[in-house]
Design a protein around this nucleic acid. Structure first.
Lengths: 165, 165
DNA sequence: AAAATGAGTCAACATGGCTGACATAAAAGC
DNA sequence: GCTTTTATGTCAGCCATGTTGACTCATTTT
């Protein structure tokens, strides 16, 4: 079908390898988010709520601007979902001690429970993939994925400890 | 900060490992799509157009329902972006030979060029990550990502050949 | 001839991005 | 102390892209 392909067999394989990488990212992400999306729909929430719940759960006491930095969206977009989550009692805000302009975000018990419910599906999926692939493969996965992430966010994955915000 | 964590050190690491997996997927996908998004904006297109261009480029002559099956969206959603791409001369439709109800999709020259422009960024990023991580890591990446993808889509990645549609 | 299929269309709606303008309280700088 | 900057929130409106439901049309299958 008039496939536009590279001249040599070797180069073809290389190109094919990269295409596979692209598609693995697309399909893995698509399937990875499908589970939580269903649960969220039951609460009238969307994927954006999940991201907020997730990162606040991960970094209790983080500020609004920490969150904006991670999500890379505008504060107007964030405020919509964050506002709902606060209003419906999944997230609590309290003023910062050193800087009282800040709103420190934490999950309520209700929020923790929702986070657990949402992430369980994803953790199961990852755990299954990790177990099936073996420890060396997991290390390879980690290395490749880190290489794909923008340099300025790699510190977030620094070995054992958790990077602030 | 009242971190909710697991009882033992071993279990903590395990939990942390899974969390890292989740976040690697999130950040890698976010950064992976940021480049093309900028280019697309210049054409008045969005990520949905990219996906259509990509898969039609990948599988020339595919049908509309093939595409719907891959993207897992409704035909109404697809028709919007596909219609634009056809109208603006990036994609051509022709009737199927065996079944004249089908619309077989192929990229025009203009479409091929846009596809190349869009994917170049992603290919570069993947290539850089693959080179930096090494061949074994790439194999591990492949194994883990395949484990994350839903079983019914894994055949798409069968070793060397390209699975129809 | 009737039923099923592939594709397209109209209408209405929701989510979650965006820009721009503006308000308020607190902190930092001079 | 006054001014400026910063952290946050808010109003209003726009756009892209997903959804459901109802329907048409041509063609293929039964």
């Amino acid at each position: 079908m008039a496939d536009i392909k590279a001249p040599t067999r070797l180069l073809f394989l290389r190109e094919e390898e990269l295409r596979q990488g692209i598609e693995l990212l697309y399909f893995a992400y698509r399937d990875f988010t499908a589970g939580p999306d269903e649960i969220l729909a039951g609460y009238g929430f969307g994927r954006a709520h999940h991201r907020v719940i997730y990162f606040v759960g991960r970094h209790p006491g983080m500020t609004v601007s920490d969150l904006l930095g991670i999500l890379r969206i505008t504060k107007q977009s964030l405020s919509r979902v964050l506002g709902q989550l606060v209003e419906e009692g999944f997230i609590e805000q309290r003023a910062g001690e050193r800087d009282r302009r800040q709103r420190l975000l934490t999950l309520t018990e209700k929020g923790v429970e929702l986070e657990r419910q949402l992430s369980q599906n994803q953790r199961d999926r990852i755990a299954r993939a990790f177990r099936g692939a073996g420890a060396d493969a997991v290390e390879g996965f980690r290395r490749v994925m880190l290489g794909i992430v923008n340099e300025d966010d790699r510190a977030r994955f620094d070995r054992p400890r958790e990077g602030r915000a």
